[in-house]
Design a protein around this nucleic acid. Structure first.
Length: 831
RNA sequence: GCCCGGGUGGCGAAAUUGGCAGACGCACGGGACUUAAAAUCCCGAGUCCGGCGACGGACGUGCCGGUUCGAGUCCGGCCCCGGGCACCA
């Protein structure tokens, strides 16, 4: 009875390969379990295994509970690594990607993850990306996809533009050693800001999301309420052209407007092109900050020599260029109020600009002693507003500005439109055409997909991007039939992953991205599971897409994901696993050694799934041992009896114990699987149960436990382990069937069985251990009936010999009785 | 700086509503089986003090304080670790 998972797992994996996981009655309630689709990098890593082990345990459990479960898998198959690999081994990105997919798919099957492969989605295939193009065209029709010239993040290593979300700490998300540059380019954008308000508001509905994630998104959208004010640029001798220019600033502190010392412009501000000399423009350019640079650089700036008029005070203030003013937020211009803003304070202090307080704290403290005062207070030096509380002044001043036409209340967002153009080969071609006569013309629907040319030159410097492929570029204008050129940018791969979970529902539809019917039946995703690293990018884009799809009439929902679960990271020796650190754990090696069940189950057992955990090589061994114990136990006891309800009465104390342990364990696991998914305690509970089986084996041998009771408990054990050990449990079924067992063995596979019910009569203990405390300290443990009342327990506790000694003849001041748990005897103070 | 998490034995952890702190596992120690080893099965174990011993006592969930008959759990203050955001006016 050697336990050798290698002897049966591969065979079972093969037999499960193409078959969709058992679907239940079509009338059943639907449940959509989704795990984040992987990038096909070549092989699964432990993070994937954790993600899919969680999802698969849940999917299997729900299937056993009778749900019709949607559990698909696919590939996020476009993207830069394929091009890098192409350079290295001179293989075509497509070939490299498809090979990796084949390999990883084989690994997933070997792990026994119960995906419905008929629904597999591969984003780099034309059958998929044509719908990216289709969505692009629909968005273009509605003005949601548009082209503009703008300052963009450029990674010199990737040789492409990055979205703001892909830049962290001033470096590229893929090349942490490469500073991101700013370039001004013509790019395609998605107008996600049009949905900013809704994306923010609807976060409140997402009660099934971790608060951490909604907080990050809220932060990311960054709504702030303020006002736009017009500071008129004053004419300057000999440069009258710009004289009429109005200069808008955005502020959240209109109440401080009487304290303005200067107007500060971002170095990229368009007005500078008109008002600066060539030499000055060069100076401004040098001030451009790298986006989100690692540390806050020194504040720098210079006086343009121009002046602007404060719309409230009429005062003339200088116009400066300052490196810390962001062009892509608000209007790219701010009013500097050094007395009430720390940044302005630092800047004005440095350049000797005046610092004038206009708000006085209630305490009357000397506010400039410690830098800027940013709190509330009363208005001073502010004309008609003097004496008002500043909050009240804000509202009045906004109204005044609106009435005078010099400003208005506005809302500003940190969120910016989503730049989707990438100057790469391996992505979805943007389906637009440039005609010398007609301008920018969308490719007609019937021409989709605009195919990515396959025959492209690959050299050691990279894959040629589309701009270099004449056969791709040259086309005819759909409007005038004249010669025209195709757009050569491809789409950001986040476009692919923004809607892939809809495509699973109708993966082979060639008339539409998916049938409305399918989406109505299956959406929203009931449970999404993946890493926290996608808290912003992927999850906000997906929400945006769903809202656009709703406005296109494709779906009726406004949010795609009902519940989100973010799993913890697996580290090793406290560090993130990475190839460069050489500390990766290879799942393939673990399967080789311990099998798929033990590997999956260990990942679930090591910690609650939302928590990070540090890998321990020896931990898997524990699960391997445990499954060996289960296997041997089961094979020693093929069922002798028919399947029946558990006996109403136990034949012996031992039988009573087994029945109670089985049913309490079952109740406990069921509750966990339905609530917080602490699989670690589920598996621990199953281990306890198995330990009891071992302890009671002699009792069974001596017939003090009936075959009927034993068989029933053992069958339940097998079923309750199925979500964590699909191979083992199925193998036990097969072995039982082969053994010519006298009793009943399931005819269908374990994954087609129903989840066992726990019998409430057995799922509770009859006798409890009563804890007796004296002044809150544990002094005795007694046996008591679980149903004993307060009075009975009180008597029992007080009658105990040890308690009597401790009481020493004194009368307790108070006795607290918690039935089923404890008795606490309180003696008077000083005793 | 701001916003989230988290801190429990040698290690991963458990204690779901305020009610036995440390379930379950890893590592470790002992025993059985074996010519031997592996595998397997059984037993032990928070720390300190006392006792030959069964056992008894004290302490113990980052630190300080509070509420309560009773606090890992609730409240106030602080320390440390991890993550996210970070010149957003």
């Amino acid at each position: 009875m050697n336990f050798q998972p290698q002897a049966y797992e591969p065979e079972l994996a093969r037999s499960w390969a193409e078959r969709p996981a058992a679907a239940k009655k079509p009338a059943a309630k639907k449940y959509y379990v989704l795990e984040m689709l992987p990038y096909p990098s070549g092989a699964l890593h432990m993070g994937h295994v954790r993600n899919y082990a969680i999802g698969d345990a849940v999917a299997r459990f729900l299937r056993m509970r009778g749900y019709e479960v949607m559990h698909p898998m696919g590939w996020d198959a476009f993207g830069l690594p394929a091009e890098n690999a192409a350079i290295q081994n001179r293989t075509h990105p497509r070939e490299w990607t498809l090979n990796n997919i084949a390999n990883m798919k084989a690994q997933m099957r070997r792990f026994g993850f119960s995906y419905d492969w008929r629904r597999e989605v591969t984003t780099c295939l034309p059958e998929y990306y044509r719908w990216n193009q289709w969505f692009f065209l629909r968005m273009h029709e509605r003005g949601l996809a548009y082209r503009k010239k703008g300052w963009v993040n450029w990674c010199p290593r990737c040789a492409t533009v990055l979205a703001n979300e892909q830049v962290a700490g001033g470096v590229c998300w893929r090349h942490e050693d490469t500073p991101v540059e700013q370039r001004e380019l013509e790019q395609w954008y998605f107008r996600i800001t049009q949905y900013a308000e809704e994306l923010l508001r609807d976060l409140d509905q997402l009660s099934g999301w971790p608060e951490r994630v909604t907080a990050m998104q809220r932060n990311w959208i960054g709504r702030s309420v303020g006002a736009e004010l017009a500071f008129g640029l004053e004419p300057r001798s000999g440069q009258a052209a710009a004289a009429a220019a109005r200069l808008n600033v955005f502020t959240t502190r209109i109440d401080t407007v009487y304290g303005v010392s200067a107007v500060l412009l971002a170095p990229q501000h368009p007005l500078l092109a008109e008002i600066l000399t060539a030499a000055e423009r060069e100076r401004a350019r040098a001030l451009q900050p790298a986006r989100g640079a690692a540390s806050e650089p020194e504040k720098l700036g210079f006086d343009t020599g121009w002046r602007a008029r404060n719309p409230f005070s009429g005062e003339s203030v200088p116009v400066w260029v300052a490196n810390f003013v962001l062009m892509n937020y608000g209007s790219g211009a701010v009013m500097a109020v050094p007395a009430h803003d720390e940044r302005d304070y630092e800047f004005c202090q440095k350049y000797g600009l005046p610092i004038r307080p206009v708000i006085e704290p209630e305490s009357g403290a000397d506010i400039l002693a410690a830098g800027a005062y940013t709190g509330d207070g009363r208005m001073i030096h502010s004309g008609d507003y003097n004496g008002l509380p500043n909050r009240e002044a804000m509202a009045r001043m906004t109204r005044w500005a609106e009435a005078r036409g010099v400003g208005k209340g506005t809302v500003s967002y940190r969120l910016q439109d989503w730049g989707v153009s990438r100057q790469r080969y391996w992505g979805t071609p943007i389906p637009m055409i440039y005609c010398p006569g007609c301008g920018v013309v969308p490719a007609p629907d019937q021409d989709l997909p605009v195919r990515l040319p396959e025959d492209v030159p690959i050299s050691e410097t990279g894959v040629a991007n589309l701009a270099a492929i004449q056969s791709f570029i040259q086309t005819t204008c759909p409007k005038c039939q004249g010669a025209a050129k195709r757009e050569t940018d491809t789409m950001d791969t986040f476009v692919d992953s923004s809607w892939y979970f809809y495509r699973y529902l109708d993966a082979h539809n060639d008339a539409a991205p998916f049938a409305r019917e399918a989406a109505r039946r299956w959406m929203p995703v009931d449970q999404y599971i993946g890493g926290i690293e996608h808290a912003i990018l992927h999850l906000i884009y997906s929400r945006f897409f769903t809202k656009v799809m709703r406005d296109l009439g494709l779906v009726t929902i406004g949010e795609p994901i009902a519940r989100l679960f973010t799993q913890g990271m697996i580290t090793r020796s406290g560090a993130k696993m990475s190839k460069s650190k050489g500390n990766v754990v290879d799942p393939a090696a673990l399967i080789e050694r311990y099998g798929a069940d033990a590997t999956r189950a260990y990942v679930l057992f090591a910690a609650p799934p939302e928590k990070d955990f540090d890998w321990n090589d020896q931990g898997v061994e524990g699960l391997h041992r445990f499954f060996g114990r289960v296997y041997r136990l089961a094979l020693r006891h093929p069922p002798q009896t028919a399947m029946a309800a558990p006996p109403a009465r136990a034949a012996s104390a031992a039988e009573d114990r087994l029945l109670r342990k089985t049913h309490t364990t079952l109740a406990r696991i069921t509750r966990e699987m339905e609530s917080r998914w602490h699989f670690n305690t589920c598996i621990a509970a199953a281990m306890e149960l198995v330990n009891v089986f071992y302890e009671l084996e002699p009792e069974r041998a001596a017939s003090r436990i009936s075959a009927a009771a034993w068989d029933d408990c053992l069958r339940r054990l097998v079923l309750m382990l199925a979500p964590y050990a699909p191979f083992l449990t199925e193998e036990i079924r097969r072995q039982w069937a082969k053994s010519g067992s006298a009793g009943a063995v399931w005819e269908e596979e374990i994954q087609g069985q129903g989840w066992p019910e726990s019998d409430p009569a057995w799922a509770r203990e009859e006798e409890i251990e009563l804890v007796v405390q004296v002044n809150g300290k544990l002094r005795a443990r007694l046996r008591a009936s679980a149903s004993a009342g307060e009075e009975e327990l009180r008597e029992l506790a007080l009658a105990d010999a040890k308690i009597q000694t401790l009481l020493d003849g004194n009368t307790p001041a108070k006795v607290i009785v918690i039935p089923g748990r404890l008795v606490n005897i309180v003696l008077r103070e000083g005793k």
